[in-house]
Nucleic acid binder design. Structure first.
Lengths: 225, 225
DNA sequence: GCTACTTTTCTTACATGTATAAAAACTTAC
DNA sequence: GTAAGTTTTTATACATGTAAGAAAAGTAGC
């Protein structure tokens, strides 16, 4: 039975590496060589430790990437100065800021699906979104639902784009989409056939904000279901 | 130059396994034991072959999962009978049908981010969405953009929910969200603090259709950007 | 000093996806 | 028949995340 009446220093073997050092080194590897070069073994080697030692400071690789995302958000997220007066514009500004920061993270795919709040650094922006929605007439519950709807849209946009971008760089096989479009039957799917040549350029367009505006319009319109 | 005037058989070593057999066996494993039990080694064993033999019929595991998703969609997707008369309702019905089928696929997370058209079986539904949007007054380009916006929202909703569901079943650690909410400062984030106890129940609600309706309202409102 | 306890680190081992190259099983040309 | 060519299958090997347990390095009480 250990009975530590005098809470002196810390007992046990002293740590030689810290979570901060892990994150710092991981960030360096990612920025220098890309996210796919970040392995637990390499990270351990560069820190001068062993892979399993990392696991005492980080639950698993996914948590490490989450910490990396948080680190990135804390450095990059800038609150709009001055905040827009119109509540709708505040929602737009906050969501766009979050989207912008996330879109810059290549390793995001493995983490983003984690939860709906990805970073403490982003909480202020979430608050802005909920605030803008309530000031526009939504109840608190409705505003939270509205935020979550915006989050789904944002996460989906980022994930789909990030994955297809990664695929383009890793892979030279024709996309599934190309195969599908090549075999379209104009009789059965007339609009898709007509749209086929326009599809790829339309996909490349950055329409996040446009979609966000539409979504916001709908959220604030109070149409009866 | 081989000139096969008599369309004999095919040249080369005859195949002992087929893509269909692979998919069939994979489907059985997934339905019987869950998607996480589907490994290339086990699949090969159950077919009576070797892991690498699979790779002649399937590019990699991701393609296998994509084929599995397609298979699932082909079996489950049912066209609404009769199709709703109102174009807006047709969009709703088609998107909801896709959402429903995808939400039933546990292995979807690894595949869904693949592209914006995940299954040939779903093309008819995509056509319905684009058609409903054009009939509501959008140009073809706008309708395709609108479809993609709907797709981002749908994919995001599915991915976020699927991942958090998986986490709950695999994991007993407190969620990141719980940790974040436990440390909220009501002075700085008043709305989030107030919403904190309501957050988890709100997350559990199925609000896909509600969000979709809002999005659709916005897409059809033609608000100037 | 020594023993008990705690915390961190290290060693070893395994499951997994898949790259690579060799072998096998065919057809066709002679 | 044999040789060449083609396609599928198999054997082997590697990189990766990480589980399990032993070892190390400290503190506290004696």
């Amino acid at each position: 039975m250990p009975r530590p009446p005098a809470p002196r220093k810390t007992t046990g073997r002293p740590a030689r590496i810290s979570r901060e050092e892990i994150i710092r080194t991981a960030r360096r590897i990612v920025t220098e060589d890309g996210a796919d070069r970040l392995t637990m073994r390499r990270l351990a080697t560069e820190i001068g430790s062993t892979p399993m030692a990392l696991y005492h400071h980080v639950r698993d690789k996914e948590e490490l990437l989450l910490l990396l995302l948080d680190d990135h958000a804390a450095r990059s997220l800038r609150r709009p100065e001055p905040p827009p007066a119109d509540p709708r514009d505040r929602v737009l500004a906050a969501a766009t800021a979050i989207h912008e920061v996330l879109a810059a993270c290549p390793w995001i795919v493995e983490v983003l699906t984690a939860d709906d709040l990805m970073s403490t650094s982003a909480l202020w922006f979430v608050e802005q979104i909920v605030a803008g929605l309530t000031e526009s007439g939504l109840s608190l519950d409705e505003a939270v639902r509205g935020y979550r709807t915006i989050w789904y849209y944002t996460a989906g946009e980022i994930l789909v784009h990030a994955t297809s971008a990664r695929r383009r760089s890793t892979d030279d096989r024709p996309t599934y989409r190309d195969q599908v479009f090549a075999a379209l039957d104009p009789a059965e799917l007339p609009l898709l056939s007509r749209a086929a040549p326009r599809w790829t350029p339309l996909t490349a367009e950055d329409t996040y904000e446009q979609g966000l505006r539409a979504l916001l319009t709908g959220l604030l319109s109070h149409t009866p279901a």
